[in-house]
C-alpha cells in the first residue's frame, strides 16, 4: 500500500493506493479560506496545511481501513508549488517514512496530473497525449510510458483556469470563477461574440492574455447597461474561446504525434463544454473523476508506482522545490 501526501497549493490531500492503482482512500481537505481574497494566499494556505496535514493522513488511513503497519511506501509531492505549503506535506511524509523505516518516493506534481488517469477504474494506459489544464498549470505532454514523458507545449502567459477566473471577474462573478462562469454561459450564445483563440498561431503553446484583454474591451465598447444585459452571451463566447484555444492545440498534438489516445487532467477538466468538445475528437478520451482532476494525493501515489524510492540516507534531508525552481533532474524526467 502506498500512502501519499500532497500540499502544493490550497488543498490538503492524503491518499492510500495499492500497487495495482486501486484507490482505497483519496481525502481532499479544501481550505475554503481563500475565496474572500480573490485567489490563493500562500501564507494562509501554509497555515491551514500545518493545522491539519497529519489529521488528513490519519483520515486517509482510517478511510482505507488500514494502519501504518500496512503501508509499504510513502509518496509525497516535492514540487512545483508554493514552497511554504509544500514543506508541510514534505515534512509530514518524511517524518512518517523516517520514523517507520519506510521507503520515500518524491513525486513531481505535474507528473501526478499526467498519470492520474492510470488509476483504476479508468486505468488508461500509455501511450497517450495528455492535456493538463487548471488554475495553476496548462500544458500538453506526450506520455509514451510512465517513465517517458515529453512536454509538447505550455502556456505563454496565464493558465487556462486563471483565464477563466479573470474573465469571470470582469463579468462580475465571484471567485473561483469556473463554476459560476459555466453556469452563466449555459444561458448564453457561444457564437454571439468572436473572441480570439489563437487558431492561426502555429505550434502547441497557448496564450490567454489577448483573450482576456479582448473581453475587457468588448465590455467597455458595449457600455455598462448593454454589457450587463448580455452577460450570458459574453460568458458563453468567452468560455468557448478558452475551450477552443485548448482543443485546437490538442487536435494538433494528436495529429503531430500520430497518437489517438487523449487523457485530460487538471481542474478545468471539470468544465462541461470542454469535456464535450474533447470527447467528440476521433480519439479514445479519458477524463477521470473530478476528484482525480483537481489536486489530490491519489495521483501522487499513481506516479510513485513507477518511480524509485530515495536511498534511505537521503530521506531526512529531502527538500522541496518551488514553481520555477524545478531541478534539471525533474525536468529531464519529463
Amino acid at each position: 500500500m502506498i500512502l501519499a501526501v500532497e500540499t502544493s497549493c490550497d488543498d490538503t490531500c492524503a491518499a492510500v493506493v495499492d500497487d495495482d492503482g486501486r484507490i482505497h482512500a483519496n481525502v481532499i481537505s479544501s481550505q475554503g479560506i481563500h475565496d474572500a481574497y480573490g485567489g490563493v494566499v500562500p501564507e494562509l494556505a501554509a497555515r491551514a496545511h500545518a493545522e491539519r496535514c497529519d489529521l488528513v493522513v490519519a483520515d486517509a488511513l482510517r478511510t482505507a481501513g488500514i494502519t501504518l503497519d500496512d503501508v509499504t511506501r510513502v509518496a509525497v509531492t516535492r514540487g512545483p508549488g508554493l514552497v511554504g505549503a509544500l514543506l508541510v506535506g514534505l515534512q509530514t511524509a518524511k517524518a512518517i517514512a523516517v520514523a517507520r523505516g519506510l521507503p520515500l518516493v518524491p513525486v513531481d506534481h505535474l507528473d501526478g496530473h499526467l498519470l492520474a488517469c492510470t488509476l483504476r477504474p479508468v486505468a488508461f494506459e500509455p501511450p497517450f497525449v495528455a492535456l493538463v489544464a487548471s488554475g495553476g498549470h496548462t500544458f500538453l505532454s506526450r506520455v509514451d510510458d510512465p517513465d517517458r514523458i515529453e512536454e509538447l507545449g505550455g502556456t505563454l502567459d496565464d493558465a487556462a483556469g486563471e483565464a477563466i477566473d479573470k474573465g469571470a471577474r470582469l463579468l462580475g462573478l465571484p471567485y473561483p470563477g469556473g463554476p459560476a462562469l459555466e453556469a452563466l454561459a449555459a444561458e448564453g450564445d457561444p457564437e454571439a461574440f468572436a473572441f480570439p483563440t489563437g487558431a492561426k498561431v502555429r505550434g502547441l503553446d497557448c496564450s490567454f492574455s489577448g483573450l482576456k484583454t479582448s473581453l475587457l474591451y468588448r465590455i467597455r465598447d458595449l457600455g455598462e447597461a448593454e454589457a450587463t444585459a448580455r452577460r450570458a452571451d459574453l460568458a458563453a463566447s468567452y468560455q468557448r474561446a478558452v475551450v477552443e484555444t485548448l482543443a485546437v492545440r490538442v487536435e494538433r498534438a494528436l495529429e503531430q504525434t500520430g497518437l489517438d489516445r487523449l487523457a485530460v487532467g487538471g481542474g478545468v477538466a471539470a468544465n462541461g463544454p470542454l469535456r464535450e468538445r474533447l470527447g467528440a475528437l476521433p480519439a479514445a478520451v479519458a477524463i477521470p473523476d473530478r476528484s482525480l482532476c483537481t489536486d489530490n494525493a491519489a495521483m501522487i501515489a499513481a506516479v510513485a508506482r513507477f518511480r524509485p524510492a530515495l536511498a534511505p540516507e537521503d530521506v531526512a534531508g529531502l527538500e522541496a522545490y518551488a514553481t520555477g525552481q524545478r531541478p534539471p533532474a525533474a525536468a529531464s524526467a519529463r
Partner: peptide
C-alpha cells in the same frame, strides 16, 4: 516557515 516545519514534523512523528 520555520515553526511550521517543526510543528508538521512533530505532529507526523507523533502519528507515526
Amino acid at each position: 516557515t520555520g515553526i511550521r516545519v517543526g510543528v508538521a514534523t512533530a505532529r507526523a512523528l507523533a502519528l507515526a
